[in-house]
Computed example of a mutant assay.
Amino acid sequence: MSKIKNIFRAEYFLEKSHNGIGALEKVRVFEKEDFKTKIDFIDYVIVQPDHTIGYHQHSENEEIYFILKGSSSMITGGETVKICKGDVIINECGESHGLINNSEEPMEIFIFQVSK
C-alpha cells in the first residue's frame, strides 16, 4: 500500500450520500485497512451546486470536514451555519449533520471519519 496518493489522478465514482440530492463525485483516498489507528477513511468529495449530503447521524464515530474550495450551508450541532474555504468542522458522535451546496460553484471537501 502506498502512503502517497494523488486525488487528481485517482478514479472518481458517483455516490448519493445519506439520501441527499444529486450525486457526489468521490475518491476514497485511504480506507480503514490503511491505518494502524481508528481512522475509518479519508475521502475527497466534490459537491456540485444544488447537491447535498443528506442530514444524518453517526453514533460510533466522528467526521471531520475540511473545506478546500467553495461555500455552502451546513446543519451541525442543531444549527445552520455558513461554511467556506478553509473551514474545518467536527461532527461529533451522536450529532446530526448535513450539507447543502447552495452556491453556484462546486465545493471540494476532505472528509475524515474516526471511530471511538
Results as ranks from 00 to 15, higher is better:
residue 9 R to G: 03
residue 51 H to R: 14
residue 103 S to R: 12
residue 114 V to C: 09
residue 12 Y to L: 15
residue 105 E to Q: 13
residue 79 E to L: 07
residue 42 I to F: 14
residue 102 N to M: 04
residue 61 N to C: 13
residue 3 K to I: 02
residue 20 G to Y: 06
residue 7 I to G: 03
residue 69 K to D: 08
residue 85 K to I: 04
residue 82 K to M: 08
residue 97 H to E: 00
residue 94 G to Y: 10
residue 70 G to C: 03
residue 47 V to S: 02
residue 47 V to R: 04
residue 24 L to W: 04
residue 23 A to H: 11
residue 64 I to H: 06
residue 37 T to F: 09
residue 71 S to Q: 13
residue 37 T to D: 15
residue 114 V to P: 01
residue 19 N to E: 13
residue 91 N to V: 09
residue 112 F to I: 06
residue 20 G to S: 11
residue 91 N to D: 01
residue 14 L to C: 05
residue 78 G to K: 14
residue 68 L to D: 08
residue 39 I to D: 01
residue 70 G to H: 09
residue 57 Q to D: 03
residue 45 V to E: 12
residue 105 E to I: 08
residue 96 S to K: 11
residue 102 N to V: 00
residue 3 K to A: 06
residue 68 L to P: 00
residue 7 I to V: 07
residue 7 I to L: 13
residue 38 K to H: 12
residue 101 N to S: 04
residue 38 K to D: 08
residue 48 Q to L: 13
residue 65 Y to Q: 02
residue 72 S to K: 01
residue 45 V to Q: 13
residue 115 S to T: 07
residue 80 T to F: 02
residue 14 L to I: 10
residue 64 I to C: 08
residue 73 S to D: 12
residue 43 D to H: 15
residue 67 I to T: 07
residue 46 I to D: 09
residue 56 H to Q: 10
residue 81 V to I: 15
residue 88 V to D: 01
residue 77 G to E: 01
